[in-house]
């Protein structure tokens, strides 16, 4: 249908559209990764900043869905898979990078903006202690409403204590917005929201595209601790591991000696530590119940 209409109405189609379809077609053919991102709520004037950051390994195009669809079809893409993402206003990111790399970089290249009414905060908002530079006046009652402690100093409002007014995900209190602006606090992120990535025949939905680097860090830490623990347990013959094995064996030995009351030169101390710990605990416990005046040995 589309092709037909194109052929029939070809003369009425402006040259730039034809050129654009050609260019898109070329981009689709030349790039392994295509990401469709939502442009709604994304300020057009910020796009060039992101483009700048992606320069060299990804190209960001804002195009009409219909043009992209034609180009995709011309490039031999299976359009049925991505059709449902081709609504509202989209940006198309073309790259030969791994789609997750693009995702990570989109996250890193996010910008911040001032809050407007109704925004949810993307980060913790803290009004910092110190001089605000704002002249004392009606604004004082606004600070009051936000439960931010203030005092007036040289006719200016000074905040006396760092005060949290919103956590990530909280709707930002409307009355805070002008204050945040005056303080230069930009609590809302501006970033392209990915809808889907198409990569070498794979379709990766937005949820899967999100990469939480902290999760990876903590998994690596866990894997490493597991590895050390297993190495220690089997006395993996590497000096640094054996040192830990020895330490563990010694810790076990001392504790066993302590629990069984085994006294030798090496173990006397742990034995008495344990006995004293118990005696002290008991003394303290009954000291609480009835005031016996027992001096807890210290």
């Amino acid at each position: 249908m589309i092709e037909m209409s194109i052929t029939i109405q070809q003369k009425k189609i402006p040259q730039w559209k034809i050129d654009e379809v050609k260019e898109l077609e070329q981009l689709i053919k030349e790039n392994k990764t295509i990401i469709i991102a939502n442009l709604e709520k994304f300020p057009a004037d910020k796009l060039h900043e992101i483009r700048k950051k992606f320069r060299g390994y990804a190209e960001i195009r804002v195009s009409k869905n219909t043009l992209f669809k034609i180009a995709a079809k011309n490039a031999g893409l299976d359009i049925t898979k991505i059709e449902k993402y081709l609504n509202s206003s989209n940006a198309f990111i073309f790259s030969n990078e791994n789609p997750f790399t693009i995702s990570i970089n989109l996250n890193k290249s996010r910008l911040k903006r001032y809050a407007i009414a109704g925004d949810k905060s993307d980060e913790e908002i803290v009004i910092p202690a110190g001089d605000t530079g704002m002249p004392a006046g009606p604004i004082l009652s606004t600070f009051g409403k936000l439960k931010v402690p203030t005092r007036v100093q040289d006719g200016k409002v000074a905040v006396t204590k760092d005060t949290l007014i919103a956590k990530p995900g909280d709707t930002i209190p409307a009355e805070a917005i002008p204050i945040l602006q005056k303080l230069g606090i930009m609590p809302v992120y501006v970033k392209l929201t990915m809808k889907v990535a198409y990569h070498e025949g794979l379709l990766i939905p937005a949820e899967e595209l999100e990469v939480n680097l902290d999760d990876y860090r903590s998994e690596i830490g866990e894997a490493y601790r597991n590895t050390i623990a297993l190495g220690v347990e089997i006395a993996y013959p590497v000096p640094d591991v054996l040192k830990i094995s020895i330490t563990k064996a010694q810790n076990y030995s001392l504790n066993l000696a302590g629990e069984m009351g085994y006294i030798s030169k090496d173990t006397a101390e742990i034995v008495f530590i344990k006995a004293l710990a118990k005696a002290n605990a008991l003394a303290e416990a009954i000291n609480d119940k009835a005031n016996l005046g027992i001096q807890v040995a210290q």
Binding site: I263, S264, F272, L276, A277, N280
Partner: peptide
């Protein structure tokens, strides 16, 4: 073989002995 007074002194000096629940 153990100097009990010494050991007890050390044992008592441990934070352990200091903090019963």
């Amino acid at each position: 073989e153990v100097n009990i007074d010494e050991v007890l002194k050390n044992a008592a000096a441990m934070p352990v002995a200091a903090a019963p629940a």
